[in-house]
Design a protein around this nucleic acid. Structure first.
Lengths: 132, 132
DNA sequence: TTCTTAATAGTAAATATTACTAATAAGGAG
DNA sequence: CTCCTTATTAGTAATATTTACTATTAAGAA
């Protein structure tokens, strides 16, 4: 019995997210693919990104003053957002503490699937601009 | 010279956020006040919440599948979001590690003002519903 | 009390995301 | 290989969230 179909669009969307480190928004993913698939619909991008994120194949990140971003890198890591220019970066050098999830589970009664940490501040470039 | 004026609306909005633990969205803050100030405009709520959050008088929290939420409690703490029903709770029992911000600063070149951590999972009620 | 102008209400617009539907196409069955 | 079911899509409309704009109001300094 058919469950999920592999479409050209789905493949392109997943490849786009997995093939970049830019944490693109849905609209950016759409823009990345329209040269290969000119009439790819933005709705299709949203639908597939949502499903991929729910399945856990990609990560969805919610950021203040930004549309949701998507990350194909499942390696546990954190993110940094520049509150001036919106630049959005990975930060790998601090370990993601999966044990935290277990602690929260035990004390809150929730079953925790994951946590997302975003650091907010000013990137080096925006810090410099400030000095003028 | 005048810089910022204390208006009735501003006061009501701040009190509303500080007087609840429900982490209301802008629209919820608006609803909380309209009985006292029937023609308070939603735009005014957004404008004031944004400013209060920028100033650091309240916290803004960005959550997957939810409009932004606001928290009047500046005590460092984390949040838990139920991915089924959207319930949104505080979690105080794990310390907010401000030292993390300094580590990220040193290694990334950003100046970090804060970080926000949200745990995602299922609340006790939604876990039970699942068993039917 | 007057006067300047920050802030508001009300509305329109922009941005972000989801819903709907006829048409398309994936892939199992024959 | 062809047919058939139906998951998926393109295109569009609708909704949700947030910001922008402007005439009017009102905070608070002089």
């Amino acid at each position: 019995m058919i469950k999920e179909r592999t479409t050209k669009q789905k493949t392109l969307i997943l490849s786009a997210v997995q093939g970049t480190k830019t944490h693109p928004t849905a609209e950016q993913v759409h823009a990345m693919i329209t040269d290969v698939a000119p009439n790819l619909s933005l709705g299709t991008v949203y639908r597939n990104l949502n499903r991929l994120a729910e399945t856990g194949i990609i990560r969805r990140i919610s950021v203040i003053n930004s549309p949701d971003r998507f990350d194909g890198d499942l390696t546990p890591h954190h993110h940094i957002s520049c509150t001036d220019c919106g630049k959005f970066c990975d930060f790998f050098e601090i370990n993601y503490d999966a044990e935290l999830d277990r602690v929260i589970e035990a004390r809150s009664g929730f079953s925790i699937a994951k946590h997302e940490t975003v650091f907010y501040g000013k990137c080096p470039e925006c810090k410099n601009k400030e000095l003028n």
